[in-house]
Write a protein that binds this DNA or RNA. Structure first.
Length: 970
RNA sequence: GGGCCUGUAGCUCAGUUGGUUAGAGCACACGCCUGAUAAGCGUGAGGUCGGCAGUUCGAGUCUGCCUGGGCCCA
């Protein structure tokens, strides 16, 4: 350490500096880690070793059992965020801890590549280059999407690797790989072949801006201002009371009026005819209602409706029974196309919370509308709006008008349809009132544009049809999936309820999308029957072509390449693409099957808790439909990462914690330690304070390891002491190792990383730093190297080091690797180790009991020493001698075989049985031993050293004289 | 609005089947050491266990309601 120039002046009484004879800790392992710089060096070393492959090879040689963690694919779009970091870190804990427990672990990271978000980005790019979407060929468009996804795979992969995440990065999977696309299509064919697929026609969420149907998961709700209209439907059939009256409906979607076919009411709601008596005065416009008008509304809402219509005075005429009533369409008097009966239909979905108590029903534009329409025996669903959200030409009065703008800056804003409908309603004399309303409205998660309900033909997978395959055995998909859920272990257990209730109630799986970037529903449909073509030969040609050329083959090749002898004129080629959830639901098929050294099903899927509706479920359905069970045995979920105050991170709030920045400032190891310390099953917080706390915990661990490295600098196995020769303290520490060994194994087996790090941290603090190291410091520094006690202490320290570096290696692999290679520069990587076995005879309940008692006495003694210290009577505890009285004979017995002075770290001490527990502190006036600083009676002129040190120095001098380079303080 | 989950010291977490003055580590204050030194040891302060109401001899722990937060859905 210090060279001669820096050596402090010798001021000992006999003129010798004994410092050089003291065995101080000696290690190049720095106190300050410099993680941001050191981690890349360690990563480089791992890369050189091809660590993951080496780990697998070593386990496979040993015939280790296989453990499969199947990676849920992040979307290849954008840089990684703290949520990714947490998730991949947790996965790495699983991978490394299973290796540690002796498994051969298969982990193939993957990416989700298809789908709307990437298409959207590419469309944006095109727009910014001034190119229109339809100027670009589908092939070019798909190529650009592919390049875009490939770019982000690279970026994210480097980010994940920087966190220390190990896995088969070279053979990562991607849903856009040709082999993956072929496998996805092959999975799709299984659904077709087993009759689980059908073409349905029902209103789905449709985004005109993106020209596609959206799944529920692709829709988000935002506040949105809509026009609201109150519309009169003149009664044509009804009781006498209703003659000349109009049913009033209220809607926020005027554009659906042309598609109106019915009015829904609720039989439990009271309705009446109301007569308008007087209008408000001084209005700035001519009101649409007049005195004498008769309106039918729910009683509870009558006042609201009248207020909206600017009616100053009205009276209730009489109650109305809506059953069997019919009205005419409000546009009937403008165009004959609207001259049809509009029946009133009873429906539960109608409430009297708002509106008029009647619901305008357009079966092609709402789920409730559709269901109530079907429930009353109607089959024909009017198609009024085309894929661009414009009225079809056949729609009278409005043909060609757009509901939403789909191009340019106005994309997502309302088009002319609403206005035109309102104008015509006014012209027809059927508009009662209008206004504006801000409400929660569905929007596309990607374009943020509003969506509409639109009746479209789509492909669905049935949930409730018995399937007669050998995998399903006559069960429905829902039944098979629910059974699979029961057979799955959930961490935490609550996940089972959550996914079960979702699967119980979910609708059929809508899998078709009218988009370009994805795996196709590669099949032919008989134009006559509408049924998909079943021909294994055709399917094989399709899958082979996609495996060779990617999904583009389906779009680019002539149909005759696939159809073979089938008549091309008879079949329609389906060009829809699959829901991206179908892709991700199929990852098990192309990652866990037909690969070496893996297994289907996976032992574990690990994702955020939002994936109960996402990947866990898509995988469950896909696998249940094709294989009759889930592709996993267990599911582990983690919560979300919030900012320091428990609030959601967002760019606008400026509270985003960027993992890259944390790595730069603190190191990936700090993110890992944070992930290890939190209760990941719940939402967790990260921010400045949390990172500071984590860094402090890290320092504690690091210094513990560093101290051991220093104390063990010249230790070899030759020095080891047998258990029988160990002093009580050493036996106690070994007992703690025995205890922790079981805890650590159990915690890793349960993925309870907190239950590894917390007990280990407490062990480092309470048992090592404050007890073992502090007590043994004297022996380590001052005893002769061949002293049995010193050797025992180092033997135990060696055992502690072996275990700490193993136990913590899954969590903080950089630091454990650094420690390991510091001690064993030529050894293989620490990561390759299997958790050290712990001899059963280390268990020592008697020592555990003893030290619990001794610790209590120590606490009492330090309390008394603290009193003297405050009185300035002593400084160091070595200035004192304590006489301890113990009330309990058992406490006294606990000191049997112990040197109380050693335990209390004083120069002298005695324990005795007497009265209450107390400790008397005497200030010693003996001279200090110049070497070990203890105040002992034997020290004093002419002797400046205690006997122990005298002897130790003699041995040290002799060794030096013999030319042996005894390594004390360097 | 519905389903599921969640709220213990500044931070991260323990608190077994309800049972004495609610614990730990870190941070903080103060002190010791100066041979782990941007380290180590000790002492101390800090909590109406989200709130209210019940059950009970006794509730952080059980029940109900309310409230904050989250995920999913509408």
């Amino acid at each position: 350490m210090a060279d001669d120039a820096e050596k402090p002046p010798v001021d000992t009484k006999d003129g010798r500096d004994y410092r050089e004879t003291v065995f101080l800790p000696d290690t190049p392992f720095p106190m300050r880690a410099g993680l941001p710089q050191k981690e890349p060096q360690i990563l480089a070393r791992w890369a050189e070793l091809d660590l993951y492959k080496a780990m697998r090879a070593e386990r496979q040689r040993a015939g280790a059992p296989l453990f499969v963690l199947h990676d849920g694919p992040p979307y290849a779009n954008g840089a990684i965020h703290i949520g990714h970091a947490l998730q991949k870190t947790l996965k790495d804990f699983v991978v490394r801890s299973r290796f540690l427990l002796g498994y051969d672990v298969d982990f193939v990271p993957g990416w989700d590549c298809h789908g709307l978000p990437i298409e959207w980005k590419i469309e944006e790019e095109l727009r910014s280059q001034g190119r229109r979407k339809d100027e670009v060929s589908k092939a070019e468009f798909r190529t650009r999407c592919r390049e875009y996804a490939a770019h982000w795979i690279d970026v994210q992969r480097e980010g994940f690797k920087r966190l220390g995440v190990i896995g088969d990065w070279e053979n990562r999977y991607a849903t856009m790989d040709y082999g993956s696309e072929a496998a996805i299509v092959a999975e799709f064919h299984k659904f077709v072949a087993s009759g689980q697929l059908y073409r349905g026609s029902k209103p789905v969420m449709w985004s005109p801006v993106e020209r596609t149907a959206l799944a529920d998961a692709e829709v988000e709700y935002h506040d949105h201002v809509s026009p609201t209209i109150w519309v009169k439907f003149p009664v044509t059939e009804g009781s006498d009371a209703t003659r000349g009256a109009s049913v009033v409906i209220w809607t926020t979607t005027p554009w659906t009026i042309p598609a109106n076919r019915a009015i829904s009411y609720n039989p439990d709601i009271a309705y009446s005819v109301y007569e308008v008596e007087a209008m408000e005065q001084g209005l700035e416009f001519e009101p649409w209602a007049r005195p004498g008008d008769r309106l039918i509304v729910a009683d509870k809402l009558a006042a609201d409706v009248m207020a909206a219509a600017k009616v100053a005075k009205h009276r209730r005429v009489e109650a109305v029974d809506c059953q069997g009533m019919e009205c005419e369409h409000p546009l009937a008097n403008l165009d004959s196309h609207y001259r049809f009966a509009v029946p009133l239909l009873a429906g539960d979905h109608v409430t009297d919370d708002a509106g008029t108590g009647f619901v305008h029903t357009a079966p092609g534009h709402g789920a409730d509308d559709y269901l109530v329409w079907l429930a009353h025996g109607h089959r024909e669903i009017p198609d009024t709006v085309d894929p661009d959200g414009a009225y079809y030409p056949h729609v009278a009065l409005f043909g060609g008008l757009k509901v939403l703008e789909t191009d340019g800056k106005k994309a997502g804003k309302f088009g002319p349809a609403n206005g035109a409908v309102m104008e015509k309603l006014i012209e027809a004399g059927r508009l009662l009132a209008r206004g504006r309303l801000e409400h929660s409205y569905p929007h596309s998660w990607r374009s943020k544009a509003p969506v509409i309900f639109r009746n479209t033909p789509q492909w669905f997978i049935r949930m409730d049809e018995p399937v007669d395959t050998k995998e399903l055995g006559g069960r429905t998909l829902r039944e098979a999936a629910l059974e699979a859920i029961e057979a799955t272990t959930f961490y935490p257990a609550g996940g089972k309820n959550r996914i079960r209730s979702m699967v119980e109630s979910r609708p059929d799986w809508l899998i078709s999308r009218q988009r370009a970037w994805g795996a196709p529903l590669a099949m032919f449909v008989d134009k006559e029957t509408g049924q998909p073509l079943h021909d294994p030969e055709v399917d094989k040609r399709i899958v082979d072509a996609i495996r060779a050329e990617g999904a583009d083959a389906w779009f680019n090749r002539p149909v005759t390449d696939f159809l073979g002898s089938h008549d091309p004129d008879r079949y329609e080629k389906v060009e829809d693409i699959l829901d991206v959830w179908f892709d991700s639901g199929s990852t098990h098929a192309f990652t866990l099957e037909n690969r070496a050294h893996t297994r289907w099903p996976a032992d574990l899927y690990l994702e955020g808790s939002d994936q109960h509706r996402g990947w866990f479920q898509s995988s469950l359905l896909e696998s249940s439909g094709t294989r009759g069970r889930a592709p996993y045995d267990a599911i582990l979920t983690h919560g979300f990462t919030m900012d320091e105050n428990g609030e959601k991170m967002s760019k606008s709030k400026g509270n985003v914690v960027d993992p890259e920045q944390v790595i730069k400032d603190n190191g990936a190891e700090i993110i890992r330690l944070w992930a290890a310390m939190i209760d990941y099953s719940d939402d967790s917080r990260i921010g400045k304070t949390v990172l500071q706390t984590t860094s402090d915990a890290y320092r504690k661990l690091r210094n513990t390891v560093r101290y051991m490295l220093g104390a063990l600098s010249d230790y070899t196995a030759d020095e080891a002491v047998e258990l029988e020769q160990m002093p009580p303290l050493e036996r106690y520490v070994l007992h703690r190792l025995w205890e922790l060994d079981a805890q650590v194994r159990d915690a890793y087996a349960r993925y309870a990383f907190q239950d590894v790090i917390r007990p280990v941290l407490e062990f480092c603090q309470d048992d090592l730093s404050a007890l073992f190291f502090d007590i043994r410091k004297d022996s380590l520094y001052c005893d002769r190297p061949d002293d049995l006690g010193r050797r025992a202490a180092r033997t135990v320290m060696d055992a502690v080091f072996e275990r700490l570096t193993a136990w913590l290696s899954p969590l903080i692999p950089f630091t454990t690797e650094e420690a390991w290679t510091t001690r064993y520069p030529d050894a293989h990587s620490n990561c390759l180790r299997v958790i050290p076995t712990t001899p059963a005879d280390w268990r020592n309940d008697a020592e555990a009991e003893r030290w619990a008692k001794v610790k209590a006495v120590i606490a009492h003694v330090t309390g008394e020493l603290e009193v003297k210290r405050r009185e300035k009577a002593i400084g160091s505890a070595l200035d004192a001698e304590v006489g301890v009285s113990l009330a309990d004979a058992a406490d006294l017995a606990a000191f049997e075989g112990l040197d109380p002075a050693e335990v209390f770290r004083t120069s002298a001490a005695a324990v005795a049985l007497a009265g209450d527990m107390s400790a008397a502190v005497h200030v010693l006036d003996h001279a200090k031993c110049e070497r070990c600083w203890r105040r002992l009676p034997e020290v004093g002129p002419p002797k400046f050293l205690c006997e122990r040190c005298d002897n130790a120095v003699e041995a040290w001098d002799a060794k030096r004289a013999n030319g042996a380079h005894g390594k004390a303080s360097a």
